[in-house]
């Protein structure tokens, strides 16, 4: 860890109670992950639904208590902080939620929404009207939008309001949960460009949570791929995209339909359904769906290892351009 690190997550676990009232059984939504984000860096968490990426984001933001591990933000341990002790830190870390419109209070005007952080953290000495104007212009909305209500906004406009609110207090870190979810293709780029632009101008660090790998490619410096609450591969975006080392990463990358009818779809098909968190598979938890599975994977859990500048949890990391073995019985 160096001075530039503003967020550090170490061996964090999030447990949810499962089963009946008297059952002590718990499922691990996040099962021991570690990451660090430096000032001005964009880190992407990628995974499919149920992989624990949103839970992890909420844990970092203190909306979800963790059952093990520690989270340090700007040199201060935050997972043990109470609500009031956490409050001043919330000015330094803001979070954007998935639904562009649904994350805005429906009875509040845009002007009230973007200045809500000032009202929560003390608006003394601030001219809220001027702040509204400044924030709206930062995200490229005309000042007369201040009087509109969320339901009068398009998805892209609502997302801009969300961004304006997130940067209001000039935080050091923005956590963005699916920032392009629910947006049209022609608007997705707008939002990503805006986030990139603000990141550069304000020196923000960002944690972006997404299932869209194409998004990651263009905005993130580093990426972590999550499966069943664990990181299976972490590395720089270039490395991971150029040559995925974990079979799951490779499958995710190949699962993105590209807008070209003639492209050969040499796709890595993932058979079977995602296992339940209640009954985690033995050994490597990806073995039930892995096209390259071998006997060792079924019994022995792979320890994350550093391979060529990235961390991979796999017994048999892929060579660049590896193709799945041709013959493979489809499991029922």
């Amino acid at each position: 860890m160096n001075d530039a690190t503003i967020l550090s997550v170490r061996d964090v676990e999030v447990a949810f109670p499962a089963g009946g009232l008297l059952s002590r059984q718990a499922i691990l939504g996040v099962a021991g992950v570690s990451l660090g984000i430096s000032r001005g860096e964009t880190f992407a968490l990628v995974g499919e639904s149920g992989s624990g990426k949103t839970t992890l984001a909420r844990a970092i933001n203190g909306l979800q208590t963790i059952s093990a591990g520690e989270i340090t933000f700007e040199g201060q341990r935050i997972d043990t902080l109470g609500k009031s002790a956490m409050k001043p830190l919330r000015q330094r870390m803001s979070m954007m939620f998935q639904d562009p419109v649904g994350s805005l209070s429906p009875r509040m005007t845009v002007g009230d929404l973007v200045t809500e952080p000032f009202r929560i953290h003390g608006a003394q000495g601030r001219n809220l009207k001027a702040e509204t104007k400044r924030l709206l212009s930062l995200v490229g909305l005309p000042p007369d939008f201040a009087g509109r209500f969320p339901h009068q906004l398009s998805g892209g406009q609502a997302r801009r309001v969300g961004v304006a609110r997130a940067i209001a207090l000039e935080p050091a870190l923005i956590i963005a949960d699916e920032p392009t979810a629910g947006l049209d293709v022609s608007v997705q780029g707008e939002v990503l460009n805006l986030l990139n632009d603000l990141r550069e101008r304000l020196g923000l660090a960002m944690l972006i949570i997404t299932h869209n790998l194409h998004v990651v490619h263009h905005v993130a410096d580093r990426v972590a791929v999550m499966y069943l609450g664990r990181f299976v591969e972490t590395g720089t975006t270039e490395d991971v995209f150029d040559a995925p080392a974990h079979p799951y990463t490779a499958a995710l990358l190949s699962a993105n339909p590209e807008p070209d009818p003639d492209r050969a779809h040499d796709r890595i098909a993932l058979p079977a359904e995602v296992p339940s968190l209640l009954r985690r598979p033995s050994g490597c938890e990806f073995h039930t769906r892995c096209p390259w599975v071998q006997d060792r994977c079924r019994t022995e859990a792979p320890a994350p290892a550093d391979i060529g500048g990235r961390r991979v949890a796999c017994h048999f990391p892929l060579a660049p351009g590896a193709r799945p073995p041709a013959h493979r019985k489809e499991p029922a």
Partner: peptide, 19 residues
């Protein structure tokens, strides 16, 4: 324009996506 906007079309990594 719509086809251009699809981030999947951008094979080169860019920080300035078309809109």
């Amino acid at each position: 324009r719509l086809l251009e906007c699809d981030p999947a079309r951008q094979t080169e990594r860019t920080r300035n996506l078309p809109t």
